[in-house]
């Protein structure tokens, strides 16, 4: 009955995993991995994006674009600077 066992194992894998649905119904992942930086010098900031939780990523993300092509940084959303930015963004939305 090794085949039966194999199929049952397959079914269990299936059970553990299919709950997230087919990839065609999925959107993008979270953009930030890990905690992110605590703060960024305001003088270096070119652009700030506050991205709210969506169906595909359940955390708030603050992404900062640095000046002079230094790339982007994820700001730790729990940090003091991020909190001020998030509050500011909320105020502007309402």
């Amino acid at each position: 009955m090794s085949m039966k066992g194999t199929v049952i194992v397959l079914a269990v894998i299936l059970c553990a995993t299919i709950a997230q649905g087919f990839p065609m119904f999925k959107g993008g992942r979270c953009l930030c991995i890990g905690p992110g930086v605590k703060a960024v010098k305001v003088a270096n900031i070119e652009k700030i994006s506050v991205i709210y939780p969506s169906n595909n990523c359940n955390k708030i993300e603050v992404i900062i674009t640095l000046k002079t092509h230094k790339g982007q940084r994820c700001l730790n959303p729990k940090s003091k600077q991020a909190n001020i930015l998030i509050k500011k963004a909320e105020r502007m939305n309402f």
Binding site: R29, L31, G36, A39, V40, V42, K70, Q72, K80, I84
Partner: peptide, 25 residues
């Protein structure tokens, strides 16, 4: 933002050493 919030504590912050880990994917 820059003018109204001068009270940030940036002393611990350094852009260059916090490279790759904190970059968005």
């Amino acid at each position: 933002l820059a003018s109204s919030s001068p009270s940030y504590d940036y002393s611990s912050e350094n852009d260059t050493d916090s490279c790759c880990e904190s970059q968005p994917c």
